[in-house]
Design a protein around this nucleic acid. Structure first.
Length: 586
RNA sequence: GGUCCUGUAGCUCAGUCGGAUAGAGCACGAGAUUCCUAAUCUCGGGGUCACAGGUUCGAAUCCUGUCAGGAUCACCA
């Protein structure tokens, strides 16, 4: 159960009662009334702003509303005290039994504690990563991958039926260049001296295995083919091998997609879906032949002013109309993407998310325009942007370029430090804030790395169980025994503080989904771990606060129930982040 | 020049739908280990929430403008 919602329900009922009694005007709009935890614990367990929010609408003084509301709530069985404070806050202290119910719920719910019905009955489609299959994943891709995965998890926890998808850009000019590179590496594998890989192709060593594979499967047969013929083969093999490598990289990071969707298939499937989606736009009168203005600062000479097929994205807030056909008659990347989003829409999800890097923000307006036009403005389509990651080593920026072959491979970082620190560090920042990622610090595995702090809290909880199992052989520490322990014995401030903090988890998890901000979870976990470590350490000076009290089995059971709850909440939260919750830190 | 993101302690960053006296880590200073794991804990100093207006019972939070930093403005992908 969610304590805050529970109290909110009570306040709503009390407001209704006051309306019936003509204390408050009938039909008063109670939107905006909320229950939250006060910053200062002296203000009570929970507080409500109801009186201040309603004062103007009701034409009454906030203190008067608060006093009436307090009177209405005073006799409630769940409340110890209801006070009016400050400008009209309602400060409420809850009975212990309510907090004890929280503990019971955590133990009963386990990993599902914190689930909500925010998205119940709704589906969500999350497109993320979609890195071009022209090389292994580098550290820059990492943030979108981890964020998208965590966003999907957070939505799932809030009840959405989530589909995770990767759009494979396996069509277009860059893929041809990849095919040409593969062909050169193939000739190299056959013993030819190819010298340097020409400018504009992909010089990285990772293309050499592709050449070798081609040599092994085709011998020297491709040497006699025309360019069109060999490119069809080298392109396909290169894409297949690089996608396999990308999937391995994602796997190392523990990122999983349900669907890998091929751009190529949009054009070369049973029907030309690009043509179909353009037809759809044409039916709306959004396609025309025209010219677009020359971009500011564009190099002279490269710019060709010509009449072309345009999508009228300016009708939907874009700052210029967008080209759909290249001068050679093939589709632009955007045209294919229009078709891809049309395809998504046809599959019928309730919410669409497209996680993009900051280098694609300029692309968002035309994408939104297309989705809006294709769905008659009905689709819920969000494009969370992950800001760029500045990669540093010992504080010095590392420059990266895939085409030049100089980049920090995601795989190298993950192999060196593990997926957990990488994921946690990426998620510890709000997604639309820029992030400095210092390799030397992540590699260090020092205590500066908050992931260990949180993991250690989980491991420490586990170790408490191991120790007590060893020392108190008679004690029943089964799930059932802990669930039935006497929670009245948890009377220490540190214990109560832990319970109250864990009561916030459902609200945190739900807000993370509602605001599409997974970073709220690691911050919450870090604070929870801090409370747990602090309480644990009090046992050093005050042995009577330790979890294990060998001469008091009932007290020990109650405290173990608390420890178990902490363990469950931490592992539940880490699970959402895709970070492991270890039993020990050795 | 247009658009988007960011600006909070020396540094890195949180800050709930607008809520009461703005928080944490690091760094700096002082302490805790016969103890359930010290990968931990306790205490301390440290702020013009970039700046200027506005909205209201109340603004770090919302609106407008200015300044600073980053991203982006293609028939690329």
């Amino acid at each position: 159960m969610n304590v805050f919602k529970h109290v909110e329900t009570k306040i709503s009922a009390a407001l209704e009662a006051l309306k019936t009694d003509d204390v408050l005007p009938n039909g008063l709009n109670v939107q905006g009334v909320e229950v939250q935890e006060p910053r200062d614990p002296a203000h009570g367990d929970v507080a409500s702003n109801a009186a201040m929010v309603l004062a103007k609408r009701a034409g009454m003084k906030p203190r008067d509303i608060a006093t009436a509301l307090a009177g209405q709530l005073a006799d409630d069985e769940d409340f110890v005290t209801v006070d009016v404070a400050g400008p009209g806050f309602l400060n409420i202290r809850l009975k212990d039994s309510l907090w004890q119910d929280v503990l019971s719920n955590i133990l009963a719910d386990g990993d599902t504690y914190g689930d909500s019905d925010l998205g119940s009955g709704m589906s969500a489609h999350v497109e993320f990563v979609s890195a071009n299959p022209t090389g292994p994943m580098h550290i820059g891709h990492c943030r979108g991958a981890v964020f998208g995965d965590a966003l999907a998890n957070v939505l799932q926890k809030a009840g959405y039926d989530v589909t995770r998808e990767y759009y494979i850009n396996d069509a277009g000019a860059q893929v041809d260049k990849l095919g040409q590179t593969a062909y050169l590496r193939y000739r190299e594998a056959l013993g030819e001296d190819i010298s340097a890989i020409p400018e504009g192709l992909y010089p990285g060593d990772y293309m050499m295995p592709v050449g070798e594979a081609l040599a092994a499967s085709h011998g020297d047969m491709l040497m006699n083919e025309t360019k069109d013929e060999y490119l069809a083969i080298t392109r396909k093999v290169a894409i297949e091998m690089l996608m396999a490598s990308i999937k391995e990289d994602l796997g190392a990071l523990r990122v999983k997609h349900d669907v890998f969707f091929s751009e190529w298939s949009l054009i070369h499937g049973q029907t030309d879906q690009v043509a179909e989606s353009i037809e759809k736009l044409k039916a709306h009168g959004l396609i025309y032949q025209g010219r677009i203005p020359k971009p500011i600062d564009h190099d002279e000479g490269e710019w060709e002013d010509r009449e072309q097929t345009l999508f009228k994205s300016t009708d939907y807030g874009d700052d210029m109309d967008r080209a759909l056909m290249k001068s050679d008659g093939s589709y632009t990347y955007f045209a294919n993407d229009v078709a891809y989003h049309y395809n998504k829409l046809e599959r019928g999800f309730d919410h669409y998310f497209n996680v993009l890097g900051a280098d694609h923000v300029g692309y968002i307006p035309r994408l939104k325009a297309a989705v809006s036009a294709l769905s008659d403005g009905k689709a819920s389509f969000e494009t969370p942007v992950t800001q760029l990651v500045k990669v540093l080593r010992d504080g010095v920026p590392v420059t990266m370029s895939k085409r030049a072959g100089t980049f920090v491979a995601l795989r190298d970082v993950v192999d060196e430090v593990g997926a957990d620190p990488v994921r946690f560090m990426m998620l510890m920042r709000k997604h639309d804030s820029a992030l400095d990622f210092d390799l030397s610090k992540v590699v260090e595995q020092s205590k500066e790395n908050p992931v260990f702090y949180v993991q250690y809290a989980h491991a420490r909880a586990c170790s408490v169980f191991r120790m007590i199992a060893e020392r108190m052989l008679e004690l029943d520490i089964s799930e059932a025994a802990l669930a039935n322990a006497d929670f009245d014995l948890l009377s220490d401030d540190g214990e109560r503080e832990l319970i109250k903090f864990m009561a916030r988890y459902p609200r945190i998890a739900e807000s993370a989904a509602r605001e599409r901000e997974p970073h709220r979870i690691p911050f919450y976990l870090y604070d929870l771990a801090g409370l747990f470590h602090a309480h644990y350490a009090r046992g050093n000076d005050s042995p009577h606060l330790r979890f294990s009290q060998e001469d008091q089995p009932a007290l020990t059971q109650a405290r173990l129930a608390l420890v178990q709850a902490v363990k469950l909440v931490i592992s539940s939260g880490l699970n959402v982040l895709g970070v492991l919750a270890p039993d020990e830190m050795r």
